[in-house]
């Protein structure tokens, strides 16, 4: 009995101590909580160029660690967020930003979905207009009306 109790305690303690897994190591953190929060915010928008689909905040790659430390050093030295992003873009290009910048070369990216939506709507309107016209284009001819009434009579008989 006591063994089961002890075992369940161990299991429970594991459940309690579940923490979000972070790549940021304790010794990297800044003492100032405000700066640290900014550092986390910035790192979440900086791509780890080794793993490429992770931010440097999530990645365990050594380059990600180097960049995390670099971001924190710059913050401590009083750099603004934009200065830090610019510093990285100068070296690695826009690809290092997880949130692509809005500029002429990315207009297709940002406006693309809107253009597709407009084209889609236009085509829908065109198609619907056409089908409406097809139904009410012209009245039935004499011959058509006769054959229609014949068909209806047949239906009534059965």
């Amino acid at each position: 009995m006591s063994r089961i109790k002890a075992l369940s305690l161990v299991v429970l303690s594991y459940l309690i101590y579940v923490q979000p897994i972070m790549a940021v190591q304790p010794n990297e953190r800044l003492a100032d909580p405000l700066l640290e929060e900014r550092a986390r915010m910035l790192s979440q928008n900086i791509r780890c160029l080794v793993c490429q689909n992770q931010s440097i905040d999530d990645s365990n790659a050594t380059l990600a660690k180097d960049l995390r430390v670099l971001v924190r050093e710059k913050l401590t030295a009083g750099a603004t967020n934009d200065e830090i992003f610019d510093f990285l873009v100068d070296r690695y290009g826009d690809f290092i930003l997880l949130n692509p910048p809005f500029k002429p070369s990315t207009y297709v990216l940002w406006y693309g979905p809107l253009i597709f939506l407009i084209v889609g709507l236009l085509m829908t309107v065109l198609i619907m207009n056409k089908s409406k016209r097809r139904v009410s284009e012209k009245p039935l001819s004499q011959a058509e009306r006769v054959s229609l009434s014949k068909l209806l009579e047949q239906k009534d008989k059965t």
């Binding site: 160029l49 080794v50 790659a61 050594t62 380059l63 180097d66 670099l70 070296r91 290009g93």
Partner: peptide
């Protein structure tokens, strides 16, 4: 030694 210059050169892993 600390890999800082490599970052200036756009170095990867």
């Amino acid at each position: 030694r600390d890999g800082r210059a490599a970052i200036d050169w756009g170095g990867l892993w």
